[in-house]
Design a protein around this nucleic acid. Sequence first.
RNA 1: GGGCGAAUACUCAAGCGGUCAACGAGGACAGACUGUAAAUCUGUUGGCUUAGCCUUCGUAGGUUCGAAUCCUACUUCGCCCA
Length: 428
Amino acid sequence: MDHPFLSELAWRGLLHQTTSPELAGHLATNGRVAYCGFDPTSDSLTVGNLLPITILARWQQSGHRPLVVMGGATGSIGDPSGKSAERQLLGLDQVRTNVISQRPIFERLLDFSGRHAASIVDNAEWLMKLGYVELLRDVGKHFSVNQMVARDSVATRLEGRDQGISYTEFSYMILQAYDFLHLYKTAGCTVQLGGADQWGNICSGIDLIRRIEGGEAYGITNQLVTKADGTKIGKSESGAIYLNAHRTSPYRFHQYWLNATDADALRFLRWFTFLSRPRVEELEAEQARDPSGRPAQRALADEMTSMVHSDAEMKRAKECAKALFSGDIRSLDVRSAVDVAADLPSVRMARAEFAGAGRSIIDLLTMPGLALASSKREAREFLEAGAVAVNGEPTSLGASITASSLLHGRFAFVRRGKRQWAVVEAVD
RNA sequence: GGGCGAAUACUCAAGCGGUCAACGAGGACAGACUGUAAAUCUGUUGGCUUAGCCUUCGUAGGUUCGAAUCCUACUUCGCCCA
């Protein structure tokens, strides 16, 4: 027999391994607690961190309780798993502020009320209090260095002559195992979720629980996902795609998914969205029938944007895209123009700047904040290639923006290439 | 502690006294073709007031008419010996 949570992960192509055949039986009772750890190495989570959060959400939807563990303590050490080189240590203050700023996204995707309420804890709460001698006595005793050295994550670092591993990182797995033990005892947590690279760490925790508490705990790992070309998900031309509207606007976020290749869009629908299996299969069929309509990309972009931001933001992003790509910019009325402008990188300039001969287009392209051209040389290159349009008008090297070329007397929507947009607004 | 070697633009990687703003590859960006795709082809990839000028080859000095290239010191990393 298979629990719905497991079969859900399986058809989505996410299930990698489970630690025990009895797991399904264990899950048959509702209200089980599973935890997943997150490294607070950045102040905002990116698309790359989204997968484990959605898995916790699926866990909750199947009638269990999710527990988010922020690695306030372990994050300052660094997990050697999947890392080829020693990590940079983060300051404790930095970790603390990162933990705080990451919270909202969890609150958006998980339900913190009701019978199976989610909760968030920071492992600094217990790990920081832990004495070194105490840890060696009570926990270290149960770890065999022979086994630790045999772990893939450690072994590769030992083989690599020019890499090495510090004692600090070597000890990481002990702390993660201790986390699991602590949560088992204090929160009744019996399951740990994580990526396939976490398998070793999860097993360490399960062993520790069995040895010290004589208890049974389980682990479920998900496939590590990448784009069809093998590169990381969530990296774009202009850097990482963040989940925070402040770092990546909902419009940019929506565009990121919309621009996925066909193969990726279909995979992403399974991995990241909460669309049902029949709906996903329907979209797959549609995509096969009419690839140029890109039904999969459209559905993906809409789903993701309303999931991470909101329905309203998703609609705005769509409107915005429609105006910029299919419509004529000049046909936008004042209200829509203001809306669209709000979602694009923008700069305000005094109206007087555009009087008379106006401002040269090169000056506008290189304005910091617009991210259209990084130097005048590059701006010239774009202009010579015919890559720049202002308010829908192709623009060439010598051109200037004058008061009369502004849309509604206020806006200059500047496009570079096919889809980089920015707006200059004239203000009094 | 001793010996040897390395450090070049986003990454890898040539260059070893003038012809070097620095070969090549990858990446990235732009153009054509397209579906705001993929693949392919073309171009660009330090900056500027662009037939020219200015600033770059770990850091600081030095030799020379002239240095990424030679010398000295320092910093960092790697290998070998203790």
